[in-house]
Design a protein around this nucleic acid. Structure first.
Lengths: 192, 192, 192, 192
DNA sequence: AATGAATGAGATTTCATTCAT
DNA sequence: CATGAATGAAATCTCATTCAT
């Protein structure tokens, strides 16, 4: 609603993309709190005013970065779920550290920004639905013991924690757990 | 380490504690990026200079808040592990939302601040050791299928994800998973 | 004079009028200092560039608003002076609050803008001449005690002050004064 | 209420006074819209941040200038009312052009700023009360025809208009009116 | 143990204006 | 007629930090 009107600049103008790239890089390297229009502009080699021309407020810029990242994640997820071994592919997707830093920044930001909170929640729900559908397709009636919802949640939640804790150097016992969980997963998805 | 800070105020002066309280409150309500010495001072009804008198740099203040929160969490963890049903108590401890907001702030901060990263990593390792020891005491040789390390990691990681995702409104499928996991946990800790 | 501006838009194009309307509204609601081309454009639902297309500088826009308002005020004045009781009609015209807010904005602006100062002075002189002529027609030789010039000035000056002070909530004693002054006016214009 | 707390700096520190002087000068010369903290700082030879140290917001600065000017006007008014010929002295006080420019700025500002509106209204009411009391003392029961309130309002309102219109070069017929009104005033205050 | 004064940097945003199309 | 892109200046405010007392 609030973001529909007066979107300036073509959705894919080179300048706009350069700003998004720069903002994403600054967020990853210095944290969202440092992704100011000034710093992003400097990073992109642009004038600060031009950043504001494309994104009236700093928030608009941050949210645009989120949307792009979320869209990309959705594509990756779709690819994973189309894999011959969807559960293992999903697990690998979940553990992919490419998106980790950014994800943590957005989660921390979201706590204090309702617009972002809503966007994240919506994206998470959508992903969850896709995952559950894929698990149902894969397991069929073998899924008596573990409901697709429970499986989807455990894979996502466990993966996210492992990846995030590794990101801040708190990865004690992760390797052992990863190996064990992969065994368990394989067991679950094994044909009867 | 490297914390030979020129601390001036007595460790437990009322003023110092008031600053820590105010800083914690601001971090929870507005995020770490907004926990500036000025805002914390205003919140505590003190002059900004006084905050700098107790904590030479803003970082010192943030880290002091972390240490206090970590100490308190360690006490809570010790209580949980002393419970007659340590696994279930540990799970409840992990799901306690009192600390969630603060934890997420510190994780986001830590990505870009090495001192904090080290402190968190150290605390996480210490907690992990205590948990593993407790699980070993509890399960004894029943723990053939699930090594204490794996159990400890899964409980912590799963709990942390559930609690954080709930915090940003992305709690799809959590309730069902929680119920299922508690059943599983009970099963694991059941005497043979 | 000195207004050989490179005006591009047709004098009465719908767009031009929409800009003038929007600018007037912004001036009344937020003050002249906030009547920027950007805000006016937003208010009119137009692009900022289009405003500059019709009014090369912000000043041009402000002065165009003034001219239109002054023209309209002149028409109202002419109607009042054609009334069977011109003095009372003039007094009512002077007290008309429709124009007050705008008038005060222009007076404040004029202090620091010579072009506007000249325009206002010219318009005030013209109005004054019309009023004096009307009073002479009305009072004829009854106007021994009060010269038409004095009468015209007192009515305008008193009315303007009352209306402006009321506008900023400083209307102490105004009602009583208004009643008294109307009695005095009626007395003055009474046939011998 | 809102301005009582955390007033920084001694009420009469040299720096504070220098800022007020500079702000007043800028307001008179360039209008309130240009009395920004930046320009005021430049005018006073200070850094912009220092201005914000004394006056957290631009509004605070403007209002402090108003209060000082209003206090000074009150003193002048008291002197005038203590004159042996209070009505004539009041008229001269009203016509004093020293305060005119500033007064017009504040009136224009007040339309859009409630805090200022309230302050002006309060000051105007207070002045009005002092004037009425002085007129009552002076005229005693001679004031049958013109109530003190009406006299006070007419003197103030007429004087204010003359002075303001002169300020923007719209002083047609003012001299003649002034002479006539002074005769009328003298007549009114003449002992029976 | 505490505070007032001061400063330089930076963040966010708005602005008028120009120019090419 | 109209618009999108761009820019440099300025306004408002917040910040961490230092220093003298």
């Amino acid at each position: 609603m609030a973001t529909v009107q007066r979107r300036i600049g073509a959705e894919n103008s080179a300048t706009r993309l350069a700003i998004l790239d720069a903002c994403e890089a600054v967020m990853i390297e210095e944290g969202y709190a440092n992704a100011s229009t000034r710093r992003v502009a400097a990073r992109a080699g642009l004038k600060p005013s031009l950043v504001h021309y494309y994104f009236p407020t700093t928030d608009d810029m941050h949210i645009a970065v989120y949307r792009r990242a979320a869209d990309w994640a959705s594509e990756e997820l779709a690819k994973a779920l189309a894999d011959p071994e969807p559960l293992m592919a999903l697990w690998r997707y979940t553990l992919d550290t490419t998106r980790t830093a950014l994800t943590l920044e957005f989660m921390a930001m979201a706590v204090h920004r309702d617009a972002l909170k809503a966007a994240i929640s919506e994206h998470a729900g959508e992903s969850q639905r896709l995952i559950i559908a894929a698990i149902e397709r894969e397991l069929g009636d073998k899924a008596r013991d573990y409901s697709p919802t429970v499986l989807a949640t455990i894979i996502s939640a466990l993966g996210r924690s492992l990846v995030m804790e590794a990101g801040i150097g708190a990865g004690h016992g992760h390797e052992e757990t990863r190996v064990w969980f992969e065994g368990w997963l394989r067991d679950v998805s094994k044909p009867v």
